[in-house]
């Protein structure tokens, strides 16, 4: 499912909100979440869904396995999603549809 399809679904379920506002609302939700993850170095907790947090990994010594040469791998940060208990339980028996793998 792509963002556009999500917007269409949402608009269907919320007929009182005009579609262009639904679209803007979705973008605002996403942007607010990105902002929270990045600028406040914070967490997002969504009851029943899960939580997103920012994980920071400091720089580390790495080496090129072919040449044996030592390098310093830069610090990196990654967003991490942890599914909530309810979502996990809902997904546990989900089949996996491979059909939209190439649709992006």
């Amino acid at each position: 499912m792509l963002k556009s399809e999500l917007v269409a679904h949402l608009a269907n379920r919320n007929p009182k909100i005009r579609e262009f506002l639904v679209k803007k609302g979705v973008d605002d939700i996403i942007n607010r979440m990105i902002e929270a993850l990045l600028d406040e170095k914070g967490r997002i907790e969504l009851r029943g869904f899960g939580s997103l947090s920012c994980r920071y990994y400091g720089p580390r010594r790495a080496h090129n396995p072919r040449s044996g040469e030592f390098l310093t791998a830069a610090a990196c940060a990654k967003p991490h999603f942890k599914a909530g208990r309810i979502l996990k339980a809902r997904i546990i028996n989900a089949p996996i549809i491979e059909d939209n793998l190439d649709s992006v």
Binding site: M1, L2, K3, L6, H9, L10, R13, N14, K16, I17, V22, G25, V26, I29, I30, M33, I34, L46, G48, F49, L87, R90, I91, A94, P95, I96, I97, N100, S103, V104
Partner: peptide
């Protein structure tokens, strides 16, 4: 209305995943 929009947003994502379909949000 805002409440129902936000709740449905996550509910639709969860329901889609439950059916085995992945959810792709461009930019996120």
């Amino acid at each position: 209305l805002a409440r129902s929009l936000v709740e449905d947003f996550f509910e639709i994502i969860a329901a889609t995943l439950e059916q085995g379909e992945e959810v792709k949000l461009s930019g996120f």
